[in-house]
Design a protein around this nucleic acid. Structure first.
Lengths: 333, 333
DNA sequence: CTGAAAGCGCTTACAG
DNA sequence: CTGAAAGCGCTTACAG
């Protein structure tokens, strides 16, 4: 910075053209003669000039920055999503500005984020307060909820069909003849957990069955272990558990095998949700529902950038189909 | 953006003060009387004013943006690092601008990054070309290589003591009486893989031993599996393998147990490197070397921000101690 | 196609 | 402490 910065004025001087000509050369679609352009490019090259995109953002009102809010990256569904999202956005000329939120600092982080003149906001946090999301929407900046749905808010959303996924898992477990089917929820105030649970209950009801017991794991390893102990320690031990995401399911499987000495699936069936890479690992070989990460990212980018680039586009809610992935952790019908 | 944006001029008008007074109110440490400050804050609140940090960046020459370059997030060491890094930087008033690089688009991504007037650059990519790293350093922006070391470049670096970690693993395997010890490297042009390997060879030599065979896995699951097959299919089957990171080690363990029907560690010992969360999972229970992620992030933030904030500070290279984590995947002495 | 000029929203000496 | 003014690096009508 300080002294060394080369500006468009420096380039103009060396190329013996106006500063406007330099600016036009670096603005896609602006009208510059091939000759002028060549001189500018040559001078820029010699001086090592790089346009200051922040100045461009200030004047054009478009920063080409997309804020991505995430809460934590230990559920391995999110790193994969973040990677795909960044690549897709980069491919379209946008850059990800990353914001990590805690339950405790959400407000502070959102206020900070709104100062960056981002062109769009992607919230990939399971439980950001609706108030804050609404406040973001009020600024006029397009907002998209990723893997979450809040009908009352004027924002777009991309989710997978959690209801249907839960339902299919219920059918699978019921049809295999399990007698004491339990459910470990995630964060109870998250729409993913609610929908997966609701779909699961519905699917059981369709087979004339109900859940034997349930508990909440809060989408954390520790919470899942506590919840699993509660369920397994009941007088009637469960013979199947649907754990609301894979990340918790792994912890539950480890617990069951190590502390209870039970075999999976002979003594107890476990099913998860997400199909993160580890679900395919031989040691878990987890029956689960695949959230279509690639498709969700594609939809996210398409919807958000359409709103960013065409301004007045109405909010949209995309619900992508999920897919049952049958592996070895649950008995089959 | 467009019409709705409230600027400092709007706030000044409503508060009946100068635009300068508004600016000072939002500049930490600027001199404003409590009375003026209160009026400005009130007007700002009523209008929903948020300072435009991009404009501030243009004029002050400090964007408070830190570019973080990562290559891929499927090695779970990196998501954890990215999360910690973002939180730490946010706590210091900086924000992470994320760049995903592929081997194919490195140059393009770096050029793009340099247009963002970032205050600092963290390269957490195992193998970004030294040319490009040098080019970044030439701009005068502080550069820090994370988990990588290039002595010939005028940039800082933070690594863990990969040499010593490799050495300790060698001692462990040698002292446990293994006879045919093999090594699966990562990307051969990465300093982590080279150092871990070099330390391992050195450690074996100190016990009067040598490696029976080695192969490169390229830090990918597929590469690791190919490498492992090569080693195991030799006439003399290995009785111990050091796999250069945990991510590859899991794949190798799955392969060994499933396709070769071998028991770990009774038939063959496996050790990894990183101590990612999954290494503690019951099904892997992997003996490995812990890279001190927290300490590495702390050092990164401390070194980089010192350079950013005090300009002329010399580059520094931090090498943090690692720690052997003994679990159940390798026979003990 | 080209240049001179106004302007984006802000910070920061400068003079009072 | 305060305001008027210059200026950061750029884009974009405007007139030629």
């Amino acid at each position: 910075m300080s002294k060394g910065t080369i500006t468009s004025v420096d380039v103009a001087r060396r190329a013996e053209v106006s500063q406007s000509a330099v600016s036009r050369t670096f603005s896609p679609g602006a009208s510059v003669s091939p000759k002028t352009r060549a001189r500018v490019l040559k001078a820029a090259e010699e001086l090592g000039y790089r346009p200051n995109v922040l100045a461009r953002a200030v004047i054009s009102g478009r920063s080409r920055l997309i804020a991505v809010l995430v809460a934590y990256l230990d559920n391995h569904f999110y790193p994969g999503v973040l990677e795909k999202l960044s690549r897709a956005l980069q491919g379209r000329g946008y850059q990800v500005l990353l914001f990590l939120t805690d339950p405790g600092n959400q407000d502070e982080v959102v206020q900070k984020m709104l100062q960056y003149q981002v062109d769009g906001i992607i919230m990939a946090t399971a439980t950001l307060s609706s108030d804050l999301a609404g406040q973001c929407a009020d600024t006029g900046t397009p907002v998209l909820l990723f893997n979450r749905y809040v009908p009352s808010l004027p924002v777009s959303s991309v989710t997978s069909d959690n209801l249907e996924g839960g339902r299919q898992l219920a059918h699978l477990l019921a049809d295999a003849g399990h007698q004491r089917i339990c459910f470990i929820a995630g964060q109870e105030d998250s729409s993913t957990s609610r929908d997966r649970g609701a779909g699961f209950f519905k699917g059981l009801a369709e087979r004339g069955r109900t859940v034997a017991a349930h508990a909440a794991g809060g989408y954390t390893t520790e919470g899942a272990i506590r919840a699993a102990r509660t369920l397994i320690d009941r007088k009637q031990r469960p013979d199947a558990i649907f754990v609301a995401n894979d990340h918790m399911a792994f912890a539950v499987m480890d617990l069951i095998r190590r502390d209870y000495g039970l075999r999976i699936p002979q003594d107890i069936s476990i099913v998860g949700y997400d199909n993160v890479p580890e679900a395919a690992w031989n040691s878990y070989n987890l029956t689960t529902v695949e959230q279509p990460g690639d498709a969700m990212v594609e939809a996210t980018v398409a919807i958000l950038l359409e709103q960013v680039e065409n301004q007045q586009v109405a909010r949209r809610a995309a619900i992508l189909p999920c897919r049952l992935v049958i592996r070895g952790s649950a008995r089959l019908p």
